[in-house]
């Protein structure tokens, strides 16, 4: 279902361009013990997206619950081609931003990250929306709505 395009301005934390589907959660997320790096599926049973695949998706969640081991699991998912394609947060913690910067430096995979939108991203985006995300300019464009 197509509707007028929505353009949101945030802060780009990790460069790169993404176009694809969004997975939206209103719960904080920890990749460590939160995702199966072989499949990209959420395995944290306490999380509202448990069972959803983040592979190649724009994962929208408030903020990371970051163990310092986070990049271990995240980069394993990157190496397997199962990591999220982009991340949108209310506020991105350095642990999450580090994951994307390391993916770019060591695996030549760019994962744009945008945070600090004017409004809560959960109010602006819904699971299944098709979005274009620029981690370089911090602009998110909603191409089509579910």
């Amino acid at each position: 279902m197509s509707s007028p395009r929505v353009i949101l301005q945030g802060r780009g934390c990790s460069p790169g361009e993404f176009e694809g589907e969004a997975v939206v959660s209103n719960q904080p997320f920890g990749f460590w013990q939160g995702i199966d790096p072989q499949t990209g599926i959420v395995i944290d049973r306490r999380h509202d997206q448990c069972g959803a695949s983040l592979k190649g998706k724009a994962f929208v969640f408030p903020f990371g619950r970051g163990s310092t081991g986070t990049p271990g699991i995240f980069l394993e998912a990157v190496r397997n081609g199962c990591a999220p394609g982009a991340i949108v947060n209310v506020k991105s913690e350095p642990m999450i931003v580090a994951c994307a910067l390391l993916a770019e430096a060591f695996f030549k995979v760019s994962i744009p990250i945008v945070d600090s939108l004017e409004k809560d991203p959960q109010e602006l985006l819904r699971t299944g929306d098709r979005v274009r995300i620029s981690g370089t300019s911090g602009i998110i464009e909603v191409i089509s709505r579910v």
């Binding site: 970051g66 310092t68 081991g69 986070t70 990049p71 271990g72 980069l75 350095p94 642990m95 580090a98 994951c99 390391l102 060591f106």
Partner: peptide, 8 residues
């Protein structure tokens, strides 16, 4: 700061 794995 609490550095991430590999950033350390």
């Amino acid at each position: 700061n609490r550095l991430a794995a590999y950033v350390d």
